[in-house]
Simulated scan of single mutants.
Amino acid sequence: MEDKPFESMNMIPFIDIMLVLLTIVLTTSTFIASGRIPVHLPQASGSALDKDSNRIIEIDAQGRVFLDGKAIAPEALPVATASFPKSTPFLLRADKTVQLQRFIDVADALKQSGFSRVAVQTQQSGRP
């Protein structure tokens, strides 16, 4: 018996494998690029996240303030939150290198606007 040389190669299995690999890459890339503002949170011994927080205020390392991902001037925060009900919970995320005064300005603006449900997000420290 003599073997015949390959005249052509069947590319369909190769294409199927490439499509599966492409699907895996595209699926995992959506988890990597979350689109969040980079904030290095300070550490605390206990860190519990309030799951019903529906408004997020973030302060990045440069001191810029973001309300639900949109940049806002700290002075405009009371005007931007005026339409929210006073029972609206806020989650305050501030970079650990931000000046304390910027953090206090944002927290004070929320307090002056009558919001009492304000939580501060931290990272749990590695200490026991």
Rank of each mutant, 00 (worst) to 15 (best):
Q124Y: 11
I37H: 02
R117I: 03
A76G: 12
K4Y: 15
A107D: 07
I104V: 15
G114V: 09
I59A: 00
S53L: 06
I72S: 00
I32H: 09
I57E: 01
D50V: 06
Q62W: 12
A33D: 15
S47N: 14
S113Y: 08
D16K: 14
P42Q: 00
P128Q: 06
I12R: 06
P78V: 04
D52T: 14
L49H: 09
S116A: 09
I17C: 06
I24L: 12
F115R: 00
A73R: 10
A44N: 14
V39S: 01
G114C: 09
L100S: 14
T122I: 01
L19P: 15
P38G: 03
A44Y: 08
I15F: 14
M18C: 10
D68R: 07
M1S: 13
F90R: 01
I72D: 06
A61D: 14
V98P: 11
L92I: 10
L67F: 14
F84C: 05
Q123P: 06
D108M: 07
A61Q: 12
I59P: 01
F103H: 05
A71H: 11
L41Q: 02
G35Q: 07
F84N: 00
R55S: 09
D108H: 12
S53I: 05
T97F: 08
L67Q: 06
V65H: 11
V20M: 13
R117E: 07
D16P: 02
V79K: 14
K4G: 00
A94V: 07
I59S: 05
K111S: 15
T28K: 07
D68N: 15
T28L: 15
E2V: 13
V106N: 00
Q112K: 15
V106I: 09
P38A: 04
L41G: 01
